[in-house]
């Protein structure tokens, strides 16, 4: 599984970073990006889906 934050949609709500800090980080402006090229380590798939389901801007996508 891979996750991706679309930087043109992310507005820095920081929901993904709060819910899944293993998968996402934020820059100095507070905008999010995926860690590890978006590769989701085994066992963290639910956290990736949770982050997607909580992004107000629909900025996160998942490739299964």
């Amino acid at each position: 599984m891979r996750v991706h934050v679309d930087p043109s949609k992310c507005q820095g709500h920081n929901r993904c970073y709060a819910l899944a800090p293993e998968l996402f980080d934020v820059d100095d402006l507070g905008n999010a990006f995926e860690l590890n090229d978006g590769v989701v380590p085994a066992g963290l798939e639910d956290k990736a889906r949770l982050a997607l389901a909580n992004c107000p801007e629909f900025a996160i996508s998942i490739e299964e």
Partner: peptide, 8 residues
Amino acid sequence: LLPAFAPK
């Protein structure tokens, strides 16, 4: 203003 209000 964003840096002053970023999570870190």
